[in-house]
Amino acid sequence: MASSSKTFFSEAGAMTRFAGVFFQQAFKPRYEFRAFIKQCYIIGYQSLPLVGITGFIMGLVLTMQLRPSMVDYGVEAQIPAVIGLAIIREIGPVITGLIFAGKIGSSIGAELGSMRVTEQIDAMEVSGTNPYKYLIVTRVAATTLMLPVLVILSDAISLYGAYLGVNIRAVTSPSLFITQVFDVLDYSDVLPAIFKTFFFGFAVGMIGSFKGYNSKKGTEGVGRSANSAVVLASLAIFVIDLIVVQITEIMGIN
């Protein structure tokens, strides 16, 4: 017990130091723009199909599952408003964040882990290139900036799925659906929800990078890095979500 808590705190300390180096390195030249753009393409653009499909299914299924209860309570007309609020405030950011952690967290963990055990990171270092700046800063910056974009797109696609879900049993025009959704939405619903996704993205990139960069023990270590990156990043998303909700509640913007 004492040993496992010691391991936990020493790992937490190491990860905090690792994250601290990001802020030291990110704003200091030389800037790796080309590598950053490439990572944005891989992390953002190539995640679009997965995020889009899951977003669409999420909106559609949520509407279909919610419908019977709403009908029972006689508030069928409120379905677009309820679904819109649920998707934009919570389900969109969290589910997209989890999908993102699964896809990107594991791929960063495995890629950097494999580069570590095949000495590619050492090769970068001995050639006088700062591997932290080239590999970590670019990936973490890309995850931090790309996840909010993906969440906004996922929210939009989810709402389209919800619109189709509403139209399975009833007939609603697109303009009425959109009006009903946006009537109940306020900036205090949208902005904190988007704001927290920057932290989700940072956590996914940082945890994946930390696990991969410090990978040990050959191919077994690479698998372990990828796995623990996903588990920890998913957990981090829930913890950050909890903290952000508490903060927005205290600030009265909930």
């Binding site: 580069m115 095949t118 590619q120 050492d122 090769a123 270092e125 001995v126 050639s127 006088g128």
Partner: peptide
């Protein structure tokens, strides 16, 4: 100083996501 020292790794440590041209261009 490292720029003046070449290091040939036992495992070669070529960047496997880059072509040979990019491997050489990188440093």
């Amino acid at each position: 100083v490292r720029v003046k020292i070449g290091f040939l790794f036992q495992s070669n440590a070529l960047y496997d996501s880059m072509t040979i041209r990019e491997n050489l261009e990188f440093p």
